[in-house]
Amino acid sequence: MNRWLCCLLGGVLLGLTGGAGAESSAVTGLKWDSKPTSAQIAAGKALSMSCAGCHGAAGNSVSADFPNLGGLNYIYLYKQLLDFKHGARKSPIMAPMVLALSDQNLRDLAAYYSEQKYSPAAGANEDDAERQDKAGLLKLGKRIYEQGLTAGGVTACIRCHGAGAAGRVGHFPRLAGQHAKYLAAQIKAFKAGGRGNDAGKMMEHVALPMSERDIQAVAFYLQSLR
């Protein structure tokens, strides 16, 4: 199947079901543009104290190993937490963290982080020396993101994650300013089949033809975006 068609169909499926596989029923009935209540946000803030060690204050991680969560879509975050809890997304770190949390706890955490200010990771465009040294990598990453690699069968990321990698409501998360190390690890996980909690395994299809350099380039480029 054409990968762009796969991406499009996957987006429709994700929009209709809220996810893929056994975990999808848990988010049925919730719309991707659902907004959390102030009570949820307050409850989530209290729960987030145990998350700050990895994800930082207000969900802005100082470690490249852990993603920034601040400002991500509420339902997207909720679905990821559900997937960690029910095993649809594997993580030896996150699984025990969410094991004892109730469904409402997960919603509250997602609510809190979704309402926090997005703070991008330090990127290549903030360091002139690094930018010059890795100009080729940035150029390749930009090309992959915006145009894909036709000869290699790599789909353009912009088709799903939008202009400037700002994401599209719920279906596809914002990637701009996310830690490059974390992004690269996730792309590799999708490529190897270690992560597959997206609809129709879209990301596995996208990542499979990507080389190590392709992965590093697009991750580095995404981190540089604001």
Score class of each variant (00 low, 15 high):
L13P: 00
L30P: 00
P209T: 03
C6T: 15
S50L: 15
L140G: 05
W32C: 03
A46M: 07
D83T: 07
M97R: 14
N105Q: 11
D83E: 15
R107W: 12
A192F: 03
G53F: 02
S91T: 03
A58E: 15
G141N: 12
K201E: 11
Y182Q: 05
R159L: 11
K90W: 07
E204M: 06
M210W: 06
N73W: 05
T37N: 04
K79N: 09
E212I: 11
M203S: 01
N197C: 09
L77G: 10
V27C: 06
Q80S: 08
A217R: 08
C7L: 15
T155Q: 10
T28F: 13
A122Y: 11
D127K: 12
C51M: 06
F172L: 09
A176V: 05
K79F: 03
L13T: 07
V12N: 01
I41R: 10
I93N: 01
L30H: 05
K45E: 09
Y221K: 14
D33Q: 04
F66Y: 15
D198S: 00
G15I: 04
T150I: 07
P173T: 04
V154G: 00
K181H: 08
Q178R: 05
P67Y: 04
S25H: 14
A180G: 12
A58H: 15
A64H: 01
V12C: 05
G59I: 04
A58P: 11
R159D: 08
S211H: 00
A124N: 14
A20F: 14
C6R: 15
L149I: 02
E204D: 04
